[in-house]
Design a protein around this nucleic acid. Sequence first.
DNA 1: CATGAATGAGCGTTCATTCAT
DNA 2: CATGAATGAACGCTCATTCAT
Lengths: 219, 219, 219, 219
Amino acid sequence: MQLTIGGAGGAPPRRSLASDARRGQIITAAIEVLAEHGYAQSTFARIKRKAGISSTRLISYHFGTKDELMDAVLADAAGSMQAAIAERTRSEKTAAGMLDARIEAELEWIAGHLSAVRAMYEVCMNARSEDGTLRFGVEATAQANVGQLEPILRAGQRSGEFRAFDTVLMALTLKAAVDAAIARMTCPPRLSLAECVRELTTLARLATRRGPDADRDRR
Amino acid sequence: MQLTIGGAGGAPPRRSLASDARRGQIITAAIEVLAEHGYAQSTFARIKRKAGISSTRLISYHFGTKDELMDAVLADAAGSMQAAIAERTRSEKTAAGMLDARIEAELEWIAGHLSAVRAMYEVCMNARSEDGTLRFGVEATAQANVGQLEPILRAGQRSGEFRAFDTVLMALTLKAAVDAAIARMTCPPRLSLAECVRELTTLARLATRRGPDADRDRR
Amino acid sequence: MQLTIGGAGGAPPRRSLASDARRGQIITAAIEVLAEHGYAQSTFARIKRKAGISSTRLISYHFGTKDELMDAVLADAAGSMQAAIAERTRSEKTAAGMLDARIEAELEWIAGHLSAVRAMYEVCMNARSEDGTLRFGVEATAQANVGQLEPILRAGQRSGEFRAFDTVLMALTLKAAVDAAIARMTCPPRLSLAECVRELTTLARLATRRGPDADRDRR
Amino acid sequence: MQLTIGGAGGAPPRRSLASDARRGQIITAAIEVLAEHGYAQSTFARIKRKAGISSTRLISYHFGTKDELMDAVLADAAGSMQAAIAERTRSEKTAAGMLDARIEAELEWIAGHLSAVRAMYEVCMNARSEDGTLRFGVEATAQANVGQLEPILRAGQRSGEFRAFDTVLMALTLKAAVDAAIARMTCPPRLSLAECVRELTTLARLATRRGPDADRDRR
DNA sequence: CATGAATGAGCGTTCATTCAT
DNA sequence: CATGAATGAACGCTCATTCAT
């Protein structure tokens, strides 16, 4: 989700201690509202109420426009997720190891930040420019996701750890699988985080590793 | 929220020949608008324009409320997709065969109905009831998808074709993989439909089939 | 409430057996809706539902416009009330006797036709012409009410039964007192019909009769 | 129906000097429109025009919803009427004196505030909650009126000034008589305010006072 | 006698935003 | 740093009515 906006940027007031606290308070409220009510219903009025502030004016004061607030939400959530994942994959050397570590780290972060995940989702799928195009469109989102995973897959193919496959589609699939696991962990006939990690790492290995079964199927 | 009334004020007039044509015309326009502009921007005014009709009143005349229109869009699109898939999987006998046929049929339908897919997506992820809950929530959507796929996976496990895995998560993953392939087929470094089918059926086989490699990994 | 429209008149279809039944069915439904929901909310849609018919078109077919329907409601209710009262006062000869009989008859009819009373009320107080003036305005309503009562009062003054007072204001007051008794009979700390009759006839006697007390107060 | 929100979307901004002026301006306009056109036709658009403001948005900004505006109208009018009456009755000691003073004061206020009276009337008889029940129903209105008058009547009975009668019905009747006098003062064959006061106080005395005539009639 | 299709006008409400302090 | 006042545009929806059969 790598955004150029990153951590810095937004509205007129450029940094101060109290200002940062306010911004954080509003972002947190916005994330909860996004997760609960979806993008379209995430109005300034609702965010104001959730944040316990007195006027929507305070939001536009700190973030300027709604788009900028959403940018900030996205940057905040995506940044913290990437940081968590990066820390866990740093020590891995093999492509297979990095892949497993990524899956485990991402699942763990997701399980612990369901609202933030949902919020990122809502923003990416709904935020649009004036011309109607998605501001963080399918392409952008796909590329962001792929950007992290595909280099690992390519490295694995070069090193001979992985079989031949389309690395872009595989990256998309693995990302989608991790996202799908959210539903598996949260909806009624639940699976535990640990079980999901085991299932998905197994699946990833079977899907990517070079092996007799895989070899036979490819021509 | 008022119950549907009818006459002066709203309910769907009981089907007639001319009425069905109008409904179809409006549904088609709604699908296109949903795909282009997203749920929140799919206003009656935009749909009116796209359908080339003279008044938004005509929409509420035929569908009552916006929710009912969206229901009709969803029923229309989902129905035609399921019909297409059902026809293609009917002849298959083995679980593996049915799985492959499903993936191929679904990918083909998707590739030929991108707007409808996007529209279904927008409705499912955004349509909410008065109380704020998703009308076709993650659970409902997940269950619908899982409902089609999981019985096949379970049958395959019983028949010994498939290895042991969580059938629900696998169903979710395979569905997510198919959806992810949309991006692979449409965004710049494109893959053809045939290539996607081959990649995904291969992936599905590796992930589900009982085999030496899979056996070794499971304890 | 003497209306020129009376029992005859209305929309295009001029009398038939089935048509009259339909008209009656719709009028009855309209009265109930008026009593329950008030004039503004007495829409064709609601009346349609209450009458159990399939389309609002049926209403406009039989009555033309909403105003004409309301005229018919008023004529129906007012006519039946006047008829009931007239029958009871016919046998009285003295002004005092006619006054008491009127009060008793009107209170009885009201107690037995609360919905119709309420409906008449709603129509008279709310039905307006295009120019914004009340179609059965305060004047018209007042005159209708006064028209029945005032001649009796004047006769009583001429015959020496009644003291001197403004007959118009007295007529308005007595009518208002009877209407006020509705609340006394229907709201929680209820009074019975018989008690109301006794209280109001007593009050009317005291207010109208020539007597030592009254004489002393007038100069 | 949404709770009041505020900021972007509606709640009454907490009183300020300029704000109160605007509120007063809008309330005055609303009263005039209610008196002229009735409740159903008292739209924001009409009130805007009458108040000479540029947008209906200004109304919802200051009052939130239409119901809240109507509440404010009612509170404003009823408050000023009660204040006027209270001031005039304060000095009276006997029940009969208080009753006469009330009638005179109320008639005077009414004669000077016909629009406000009509507006209160329109709001009470027409404002309804979501469930269709009158927000200031017959019961509530009756009780409010009765609440002022009945204690006086009861006190008069205890002190022996008044005869025995149902105090609630008498209160309702006297209130209705005063309201009826509006028509007498405004419709063509007019009576002056002073004449109405004399007629009604006489009537009230005859109806309530203990006396030979009254005694004879009661058993 | 009854119905279906269509319609233009208007409703109250909500939206994010801007101009002032 | 924060707030109050104001605003134009758009929303979905409901209204009674009319033109066809």
